[in-house]
Design a binder for these strands. Structure first.
Lengths: 204, 204, 204, 204
DNA sequence: CATGAATGAGTTTTCATTCAT
DNA sequence: AATGAATGAAAACTCATTCAT
């Protein structure tokens, strides 16, 4: 029936979709989340406005998909780290470094929180975002627990500590946004050390 | 006509102004920062749209004033704490508790970061906000330094640690936004302990 | 508090509202119901597009209000006729004449049916429209019953006959739309005669 | 290549064409005439948007063809009835019954009147539709005249009465649209009786 | 001061139509 | 023939801001 390669079409579609999403997060990083229009996104992606609507039902859907992918990607990353054969301290350091190095992480952070509030966004979306956030806390809590068994991480409820760790990282990514100049260096090492127990940490 | 009236007028004006600003932050907390209109603010404050423009030149001015007051208030609070005759640990605890207890702190946090980033907001505003943020880091750094002298706080550059402390608090306030249910308790005590040195605190 | 006359404001609002609605039905009569834009309506009313939205939440609301008023007005008219001290035949004639003489009746007729279908319109609206239509059948049925008692109207279920009467009038109004040229005169007298019993009327 | 194939191709084309038109009227019945898009029609027909354009030059052509076929079919039907060897009353009854039984008749009725009025549709189309409508009045007028000769139909100008008859039927089909629940039965018999003279009708 | 009507410039969204594959 | 991506133009809708009262 169809004279075109269905599978290839699917791939092209996914490629375009991803391209639009990437352009969206990039332009949001430049213009600020609240003030990006579909027109901005389309221009950034080099496609027409109408075409963006070919891939996404609405602006909200773009945000939702962006969050879905961002959170899922982050979750996969954290899980992968958690599964490695490494001391917990190194794992935490790897997470910090990766997240702080990532250029757009602050945009995701703001996006998450923009989506979680806002009457505009549906309950459905809010639930999804919160659910994924909570789920992504799991691997970090595991790492914390591992570190506690190893004696390298401070005592306390692992999930609570994981939340502090993630919140701290998130709080810090916000300080890395363009236009924000904090007069101090932000170092993954410094972040991790707060969670480390014993003389090694204290006496550094 | 009489100075009495002028003075009273001033008071009335200030009262209205403050009321509009409070209503603004409240409605922003409900509808999301990006999507509050002047109409929303006016409705929330129980005044007319036109009347809002009697007190503020523009929407941006509302945001700017909101930030100015929020940051100034926070700065005063932190300075006051820093000046008290207390162990550093208690001071940090006091800051954490106050900030985490405050209902709208997360909205201010988002507002700050929204303002700092968006291309929309003027350089002027961005500079002001960043300047105040940096200034507000000072008292916290002092407390950290005091704690290090007392031996209660972990070693490291005081300003850097202050930034971590503030970022962590900010990151945590975001988790307290309505519609967000993190399955963990957030405790000021837990936050402070990360910054405390010594076996009592870290190895408890 | 308010330095303006509230009551007068209310009156002005109602006046503008009515003016926009009138302009809407007029322009719809010219351009066709499906193809009137808010811009057309605004232009016809001599106001800005934004101002139309000051009075109506959406295009659908304009349609809904138009229908509400049209049907209510028609209902009042029919009830008034039904209450007069006249032979039933004269009442039917009065209704036919008025309805056929009215320039925009066909537009209302189409609007009613456009609204009653269309997935777009809410169930709520559909129910309202159908409810009013049914209610408006009542007075006509009364007239029919009166005529039957007087011996001037053909026998049969009064409500059924009323439905036929109204449907015939509606069907005929559609033939009076501009651009439609039926090669025959449409006469209220001819319409009414179909419902009249007796040799004088039917065999004339 | 062979004439066989060419012929078969023609048949296939005609089949597809008819299928698309049927789907169009069906979806228009569901979504409302004004709000069906080519996409809706394509989806309803189970073909691609592009493919619809292989069969029709434009959306307007779909409407035009739909009307052409609908009116032509109706005309053929009425002519056939008019030519039968039957009393006029039976002919009228047959027409009423057929038209009222037809599921989509109301959609055609609305389509006809939408087309006749909207400024959007070309003069050409309007003329065609009105021309066919008028032509289709002919056979009905003939039946009426026949009935008058037989003494079974009320007196009056046959074309005028034909117009009333058709308008009544059209008005009634509109009451049969889905979502419309008139609390009365619509019976072909009741319709026809209005046009019948003499004791048979009157005393029923 | 207070009000809310009015505006215009944007933004989102829709959709008929074209076109490469 | 068949597909659905891409486009552009138009339509719906929003909203900061101004202004007469």
């Amino acid at each position: 029936m169809s004279p075109r390669n269905v599978e290839k079409d699917q791939q092209m579609r996914e490629k375009r979709l991803a391209h639009i999403l990437e352009s969206a997060i990039e332009i949001m990083a430049v213009k600020g989340i609240g003030s990006v229009s579909i027109g901005d996104i389309a221009a950034a992606a080099g496609v027409s406005v109408g075409n963006v609507y070919h891939y996404f039902k609405s602006k909200d859907e773009i945000f939702a998909e962006l969050l879905r992918r961002g959170q899922t990607g982050y979750g996969a990353f954290v899980s992968e780290i958690a599964g490695r054969q490494l001391p917990a301290a190194d794992k935490l350091r790897a997470i910090s470094e990766a997240w702080l190095a990532l250029g757009n992480s602050w945009a995701y952070t703001l996006l998450i929180h923009t989506a979680r509030m806002s009457e505009t966004s549906t309950d459905q979306l809010r639930r999804e975002v919160t659910g994924r956030f909570t789920a992504n806390l799991g691997p970090v809590a595991e790492i914390v627990a591992q570190g506690q068994r190893e004696g390298s991480v401070v005592p306390g409820d692992p999930t609570e500590l994981a939340l502090y760790f993630v919140s701290l990282i998130q709080g810090l990514t916000l300080q890395r946004a363009p236009g924000v100049e904090v007069p101090v260096g932000i170092r993954a090492e410094g972040v991790v050390r707060l969670f480390l127990a014993g003389s090694a940490a204290r006496d550094a």
